[in-house]
């Protein structure tokens, strides 16, 4: 808690807290990042499940993964900024807590995909990756809904 209180007192965080333009712009950037992340994740998962067959599997999955990783980094950075202005309050927000849990589960799910259902080169296998792809879609949609709920609790 002291650590979170210290974050709130950092000079850039204090400026962000009362800013008129910057905070809504960071908020908008967070939405862009989440939009890119969810789009790439869902398209990637659909392709793993066998949909979008017109797209050549390997290059398509590679491209979606690259976009997804970058979008996640952008979402993480902008999300930390939004969190920082009132960290000691958000940490008790049930929607925020559930969101973090779902992100952790999505991370474990990705790890499971890599360990149990991927080829040596990291490409998901044709058959066994389906479960992880379906779980991924559900988890990330859950993350999105939880994130939206933070402001309403």
């Amino acid at each position: 808690m002291e650590f979170l209180g210290a974050i709130e007192q950092l000079a850039p965080v204090r400026a962000l807290r009362v800013s008129f333009y910057i905070y809504p712009l960071v908020n908008a950037a967070h939405i862009v990042a989440i939009g890119c992340l969810l789009t790439s994740v869902i398209l990637m998962d659909l392709r793993i499940l066998g949909f979008l067959a017109s797209q050549e599997r390997r290059p398509f999955l590679k491209l979606m993964r690259r976009i997804g990783v970058r979008a996640f980094c952008a979402a993480l950075i902008t999300g930390l900024l939004l969190f920082s202005v009132r960290a000691s309050e958000y940490v008790f927000n049930p929607a925020f807590q559930l969101k973090l849990l779902l992100i952790a589960l999505a991370g474990l799910n990705l790890l499971g995909l890599r360990i149990f259902a991927s080829e040596q080169d990291g490409m998901p296998k044709e058959r066994s990756a389906g479960f992880f792809a379906a779980a991924s879609m559900l988890l990330w949609l859950g993350v999105l809904v939880c994130g939206r709920f933070i402001g309403f609790l």
């Binding site: 809904v145 939206r148 709920f149 309403f152 609790l153």
Partner: peptide
């Protein structure tokens, strides 16, 4: 899901 909980905004 969101409808009953609209608050804040």
């Amino acid at each position: 899901i969101a409808h009953p909980a609209f608050a804040h905004h």
